[in-house]
Amino acid sequence: MNKKTTKLEAKELNAYYGDFHALKNINIAMEEKNVTAFIGPSGCGKSTFLRTFNRMNDYIDGFRTEGDILLDGRDIYAKDVRVDELRKEVGMVFQKPNPFPKSIFENVVYGLRIQGIKKKAVLEEAAEKSLRRSALWEEVKDKMDKSALALSGGQQQRLCIARALAISPSVLLMDEPASALDPLSTAKIEELIYELKNEYTIVIVTHNMQQAGRVSDHTAFFYMGELVEFSKTKTMFTSPQDNRTQNYITGRFG
């Protein structure tokens, strides 16, 4: 067995929206090439926490953090970190599929284009590779020039995953990626996550206990801005240590 390396880490992290204390003293370390699920009742801070890993909260007026977020041991809130560079390393998939109003092809290669890559052959190869990875290639290979908005919700979400994969991040953040999708599309996304974890470190927010159970290696349970419990998914679902966790996963609140 090889030694596990820590990919993402939060140390004594506090986050505030103005006066509102949204994340309270969070310590967590997530392993490389692992799927970590964030669960917890609505409003407990899952999305807020997830978005600190690619600094997506930077644009919210009054939002601030204390403590450290480390990616490969490097503080991502340090002065010399460029957020655009950070986000090429830490990709994100959102709750609602958000393809650009461009063609399927242009969506997938967007990240490469903004890095200045123009060669058609390079772009086409990358597009095919990412679309195959996100299990969408067979469905769209004949209509790469069609608008991405004409795809179904499930296809759009896989397109967004392909778009994120195209710039080869090492971390993939997913905020309820399947909550707006039908069961079949959801199953496809879950399958995909299962495959992707061979190469990526994945953090997924979900409200669906079964989904957390199916796709994740570790689970973190949040409650009112606190990280209550963090352990192997199996352990958490079979023998939760904290009462609040137990209540939540047995469906007594939330």
Binding site: L86, F100, A164
Partner: peptide
């Protein structure tokens, strides 16, 4: 939609790229 802006930023776009590209 705000989601488009987030998509652009999430892909590592700078502000300028977000503004003019998306």
């Amino acid at each position: 939609p705000r989601s488009l802006r987030e998509a652009a930023y999430g892909m590592g776009s700078t502000r300028l790229q977000t503004a003019f590209g998306v």
